[in-house]
């Protein structure tokens, strides 16, 4: 297949190519630029453009309305100093980290991996029922998931029904514990993705390794800890990375469930960005929050690319 040209130095011209891909000269520049043009145009205009603009605006005092909307001035690092001094931003960062750790790392990864492990070697019918329900939660659109969880967490809702059944006092979840509520909902919505990637990863671990360990007298937990998890390390790393990128940008679910409230108690960074830029019209501040979010996500994304690097890009 095409892998024969992996070692060929890039940009080499002439007909000595061992096999495989033709050089770009065949048919001239148009042969590659023409098909690439629409993609490049769309991504430059709608993706690269806004990102560059974000960087620029976060150094100005741009606003949606008023004098600053027409003639934004360069304010240097004022937005950033304002941002880091702002308790709202620190609060939102903290809430985002808790949301990420709670729903992305602890919830989805532990639950997803646990489900994948428990589902191994179970009866096919059980596997099907469990994965249908869990994946069902994942397929439901985000707005619907948010609305369903509002209903589920109401004072008269389903979760308090379970609590009553267990003999505990009902809780007004969305009011008393808004962050916990959105974490629960996000775990419900996102676990399927982790479960599926871990199931795929688990199915690639050769069973003779586990059998050999068992023959040596290892318990189930020991097999999981010493054989399965180390072999699954790469899958865990990439999945965790993708889940992190997903989780830091969750807006819809939180907005639908709590709109960041009550007060600011579930205002994560995306919610803060939206409120500041579009509700209060402070584009410079909101965009600076967006830039902070982009930088954090960019670091994770770069790490993700680095992890995939060896075999994927050729």
């Amino acid at each position: 297949m095409a892998s024969t040209t992996v070692a060929a130095p890039e940009g080499r011209k002439g007909g000595t190519r061992p096999s495989g891909r033709p050089s770009a000269r065949r048919g001239g520049v148009a042969s590659w630029l023409l098909p690439l043009a629409p993609a490049l145009f769309l991504m430059l205009v709608f993706f690269a453009g806004p990102i560059i603009w974000t960087v620029w605006v976060s150094f100005t005092n741009a606003a949606l309305t008023g004098v600053n909307a027409a003639q934004p001035e360069f304010v240097g690092l004022a937005n950033f100093t304002e941002l880091f001094a702002d308790p709202k931003f620190r609060e939102a960062t903290l809430l985002t980290v808790v949301f990420l750790l709670g729903s992305g790392v602890v919830g989805q990864t532990v639950l997803g991996l646990g489900l994948a492990l428990l589902l191994q070697n179970r009866h096919p019918a059980a596997r099907m029922v469990v994965s249908t329900v869990v994946v069902g939660a994942w397929v439901v659109p985000e707005v619907v998931a948010g609305l369903l969880w509002v209903v589920f967490l109401e004072r008269e809702g389903g979760l308090n029904g379970v609590f009553e059944f267990l003999g505990a006092a009902p809780v007004n979840w969305l009011y008393t514990a808004p962050l916990f509520a959105v974490i629960l909902a996000n775990v419900w919505k996102g676990t399927a993705f982790s479960m599926m990637t871990y199931s795929a990863g688990l199915s690639e671990i050769p069973s003779y390794l586990k059998e050999a360990a068992r023959v040596d007298g290892a318990s189930t937990l020991q097999v999981v800890w010493h054989i399965v998890l180390p072999l699954l390390r790469r899958t865990i790393a990439t999945t965790l990375m993708l889940v992190t990128l997903q989780t830091v940008q969750v807006f819809t679910l939180i907005y639908v469930m709590t709109a960041g409230g009550p007060g600011e108690r579930s205002t994560t960074l995306p919610l803060l960005m939206y409120k500041e830029a579009l509700q209060f019209g402070d584009l410079g501040y909101g965009t600076t929050v967006a830039l902070a979010l982009l930088i954090v996500a960019g670091l994770f994304s770069a790490a993700y690319v680095k992890m995939l690097r060896p075999e994927e890009v050729r």
Partner: peptide, 27 residues
């Protein structure tokens, strides 16, 4: 094709798949 800029372009693309669309919505 063996294009000179292919590698950086592909890396940029993979990098962009990880960028949060939410974060660029304000700009």
């Amino acid at each position: 094709f063996n294009l000179r800029f292919k590698r950086p372009l592909l890396y940029t693309m993979l990098f962009a798949t990880g960028l949060p669309v939410t974060a660029i919505m304000v700009p």
